[in-house]
Amino acid sequence: MEVDLFKPIDDAKTIDNVKRFLSTYYWRWKRTSGESFESKVTATYSFEPRSYTGQVSKPIEAHVVRQQTAIKEVEVIEEAINSIFDSFARQVIIERYCLNRPKTIEEICLDYNYSVETFYLLHDKALLNFADYYKAGELQIYKTEEKEKKSRKNSE
């Protein structure tokens, strides 16, 4: 079996995929990684709620696992952003997706004296670079995959 390391990437679909990923998941994981846990006393005056099977549930353990998973995921995302060589491209991703209150396109253009065209060139370049670095290209969408999916749908 031959492995093709240089499959053609569908830039537009990859950019859309990365936008959706960063705008949806980064802050979910960021909030989860820092959320606190408060133990609740149950009706039986126990800190360990029992399920309907009578077994002890592990809410603190579940919380810690979820929190550690989120911390790791935030680190992976931030490492991918920091791997982008072009500092302006990194800046665009951070300003647009990683601030407590992400900036609008207009705010970024005004703050850095970018034209809208320049912003979109940097933005798209940054997102494609992020897709390269995040988990070895996990967010990339290849043109051949799309053709295969279309042909499968047509054959059904």
Rank of each mutant, 00 (worst) to 15 (best):
E106H: 11
E106A: 12
E106G: 08
E107T: 10
E107W: 09
E107L: 08
E107C: 07
E107V: 08
E107P: 03
I108V: 10
I108T: 07
I108E: 04
I108F: 06
C109W: 07
C109F: 07
C109P: 03
C109V: 08
L110I: 11
L110C: 12
L110F: 13
D111Q: 14
Y112I: 03
Y112K: 11
Y112N: 10
Y112Q: 08
Y112R: 09
N113I: 10
Y114V: 05
Y114M: 12
Y114W: 15
Y114H: 11
Y114G: 03
S115H: 09
S115E: 08
S115A: 08
V116S: 12
E117T: 13
T118C: 09
T118V: 10
T118K: 15
T118E: 13
T118M: 12
F119N: 02
Y120Q: 07
Y120R: 10
Y120H: 13
Y120G: 02
Y120I: 03
L121H: 12
L121I: 13
H123W: 06
H123E: 07
H123K: 08
H123M: 07
H123D: 06
H123S: 09
D124S: 12
D124C: 08
D124L: 05
K125Y: 14
K125D: 10
K125G: 07
K125H: 12
A126K: 00
A126Y: 02
A126I: 02
A126S: 06
A126R: 00
L127M: 10
L127P: 00
L127S: 01
L127I: 05
L127E: 00
L128A: 05
N129A: 14
F130D: 01
F130P: 00
F130Q: 00
A131F: 04
A131T: 03
A131L: 02
A131V: 01
A131G: 06
D132C: 09
D132I: 03
D132M: 09
D132F: 05
D132G: 02
Y133I: 00
Y133E: 04
Y133K: 01
Y133A: 01
Y134F: 15
K135V: 06
K135G: 04
K135F: 07
K135A: 09
A136Y: 15
A136L: 14
A136I: 13
G137M: 04
G137F: 03
G137L: 03
E138F: 12
E138N: 10
E138A: 11
E138Q: 13
E138V: 08
E138W: 10
E138L: 14
L139V: 03
Q140N: 11
Q140K: 15
Q140W: 07
Q140I: 07
